[in-house]
């Protein structure tokens, strides 16, 4: 019984709320990373004692894995867009695998740093900033993997269909973000910092 006359423009399209929300989340997250990165850069070379960034090995393999996972997820997106669920599952699994390899690589790196080089989060400023920044990123990888595995489970249960493309794309946006952040972290920690 509304009497508000209908004379609005014919086409009325709004952005997808999932996308808006994910972009917002990414902006917020970027601010968090910015603060940690700034702290890292500010404290480079200010440790009073203990090991310095020279002990770091550049994690090339890790980096390649993580960045290729971004490519894998693009293929996954394509697959689901065209309704090829099995291909989607395969690419999705590959993405997760690459993410897990990345995490394992980080774990190995940390083990070496802790037991061989004696660098812990309390050792000095380098330790504090290094573990915080890399750890913050790793936490995001973990969160990303958890969400990816949820999708994986639903896929295996046969619940994921072509009409979920939108949501899958929003989720992969997050994964791309996690990768992009790694590029920054990598540059700052392993290139600039050394």
């Amino acid at each position: 019984m509304s009497t508000i006359p209908i004379f609005a423009d014919e086409s009325w399209r709004l952005p997808s709320r999932g996308r808006v929300a994910m972009f917002s989340l990414i902006i917020g997250e970027s601010a968090i990373f910015t603060i940690f990165v700034v702290a890292y850069i500010y404290y480079i070379g200010r440790s009073v004692t203990g090991p310095t960034p020279q002990i770091l090995d550049v994690p090339w393999f890790n980096t390649v894995c993580l960045l290729s996972s971004s490519i894998a997820i693009v293929f996954a997106e394509r697959a689901i867009e065209h309704g090829r669920i099995r291909a989607f599952a395969a690419w999705w699994a590959l993405t997760m695998l690459l993410g897990i390899v990345f995490l394992a690589g980080t774990a190995i790196e940390w083990k070496r740093l802790i037991y061989t080089n004696g660098l812990t989060i309390r050792t000095n400023l380098f330790g504090t900033t290094f573990y915080s920044l890399v750890g913050l990123h790793a936490t995001h990888v973990v969160v990303g993997l958890l969400m990816l595995s949820l999708v994986m489970i639903f896929t295996l249960l046969g619940r994921v269909e072509q009409r979920h493309t939108q949501r899958i794309q929003v989720l992969s946006l997050y994964w791309h973000f996690v990768d992009a952040v790694w590029v920054v972290v990598f540059t700052v920690v392993y290139m600039m910092g050394k």
Partner: peptide, 22 residues
């Protein structure tokens, strides 16, 4: 802006609980 506060407070907690030096 809320996120930088969160980040700084996480650092503070790292300092207080994990012995960090931020």
């Amino acid at each position: 802006v809320i996120t930088p506060l969160t980040a700084a407070q996480v650092m503070l907690i790292i300092d207080r609980y994990l012995g960090g030096h931020f």
